[in-house]
Amino acid sequence: MMIQAFKKWLIGYKDEKQTDESRQRIEKLQKGRLPRHVAIIMDGNGRWAQKRGLPRVAGHRQGMITIRHITRAADDLGIEALTLYSFSTENWKRPEDEVNYLMSLPEEFLRTDLDELVERNIQVRMLGRGEDLPKHTLEAINKFREATKNNTGLILSFAMNYGARSEIVRASKQIIEDVESGKLDKDSLDESLFGKYLYTVDLPEPDLLIRTSGEVRISNFMLWQLAYSELWFTDVQWPDFTRERFYQAIEDFQYRSRRYGAV
C-alpha cells in the first residue's frame, strides 16, 4: 500500500518553475535590503511523508527537490550565501535505513543538479565533520566542491554531520593547540579571531534564519553565528516550502529593524 502511494506521488509530482509573477516579485525584493546570508533548518520531511502514507524517505526525496527550488530562488535574488542544515550530529540516532538513504542523497544530487549549479556559477561547500561520513557520501561532496571551487556566485553550503556545540569545541581545541605551539598569543584572542576557527570562517554571519514545520528552536545549529540573526518560522513543512514562501521570508526580513543591541 505504501509503495503504491509512493508511485502515485512520483507520477503526480511536477517541477516548480519560475513564473512571470515570481520574476516581478524578485525585481521588487531586489529594490529593498537583501540578506547577504540565509540559513535554513529544513524540518518536516518525515512527517510530510507519513501524513501522505508514504515512507519517510519520500519526504527526504521531495525535500531534495525543494532544495533545488530554493537554491534557484536565492541565486535569482542575488543572495551571497545559502546554508542548509542537512544532517545533524544527532541524526545518526534515526533508523539505519533512513540514515543510509540520507547518506545517498549527495550522490543523487550530484547526478541531477551539478550541471545546473556549474552553469549558475554556484559554489558548493560542506560544513561539518566530513571524516565521519561514509566514503561514498564524502566522495560525492568532494566532487561537488572540486567542480564548483572556482565559481564566484552564490555559496551553497550543506551542514552535514554538523553540530554547533561540536563546532565550538573543535575550534576551542584548535585554539589551545595553536597557543601551546606558539602560533597564537592567547591575549590576541577575541570574538573576531575565534570566528576564524569555525567552519564558516570566510562567510558572513547569517542575516536570516528560516525554520520550517512549526518548530521554534534552533536545534544546535550555528549557535555562534546566529547571535544577531533575524529568525523566521513557518508551519509549512520543508517539502511544501516554495519560492513564494521564501520570498515572504525575505520580505518580512526587509521590514525588520536590525539594531544589534543598540537603542
Rank of each mutant, 00 (worst) to 15 (best):
A140R: 00
G78E: 06
Y85Q: 05
G130R: 01
I70M: 06
L77V: 15
F87E: 02
R165L: 12
L77M: 11
N150M: 07
D185K: 01
T89C: 08
V99S: 07
A140W: 01
G163S: 11
G63W: 05
N100T: 07
D185Y: 00
P134N: 04
I122P: 00
N161H: 15
D115C: 15
T83I: 13
Q174M: 11
E131G: 12
P106E: 02
N151E: 11
S157Q: 03
E90G: 07
T152M: 09
G63P: 03
R125Q: 05
L110D: 10
G182W: 01
E107H: 08
G128T: 06
S172Q: 04
M126C: 15
A147Q: 13
D187E: 14
Q123Y: 03
L184R: 03
G63D: 09
D97A: 14
T89P: 00
F109V: 06
D113L: 11
T66P: 10
A171T: 04
K183C: 15
L127C: 08
A164C: 08
L156M: 05
L117S: 09
D187F: 00
Y162E: 02
N161W: 12
I155W: 11
K149W: 08
A140C: 03
D115M: 15
G153N: 14
D97L: 13
D75K: 10
Q174T: 13
E119R: 15
D132H: 10
L117D: 10
M64V: 15
I168G: 14
I65R: 14
Y162G: 01
A159R: 01
Y101T: 07
R111K: 13
E96V: 08
R61Y: 10
K149V: 14
E116T: 13
P134G: 04
I65Y: 01
I176H: 07
R145A: 10
L84I: 12
E177H: 10
Y162K: 00
I65G: 02
L154H: 06
V124Q: 00
N150H: 12
F109W: 07
I79R: 08
I176T: 12
N142V: 14
R145T: 13
D76T: 05
T112E: 12
Q123S: 07
E167K: 04
R165M: 14
L138D: 02
I168K: 09
K173I: 08
H136T: 07
F109K: 01
R72D: 11
R170H: 05
A74H: 09
L156S: 09
L105W: 02
I122K: 04
F158P: 01
R170K: 02
L138W: 06
R129M: 09
G128E: 02
K93M: 03
I65V: 14
A81S: 11
A140D: 02
S166A: 10
G130M: 03
K149H: 08
M160C: 09
R170I: 02
R120L: 12
R145I: 13
I168R: 11
D187W: 00
L114I: 14
E146M: 10
D76E: 11
R165Q: 14
P95S: 05
D115F: 13
I155S: 10
R129W: 11
T71C: 13
M64R: 15
L133A: 06
V118N: 13
T71P: 15
A81V: 10
G130A: 04
E107P: 01
M126I: 09
D178M: 00
L82T: 06
P134Y: 05
R94D: 11
N121Q: 14
H69D: 15
I155P: 02
T112I: 12
L156N: 05
G182I: 06
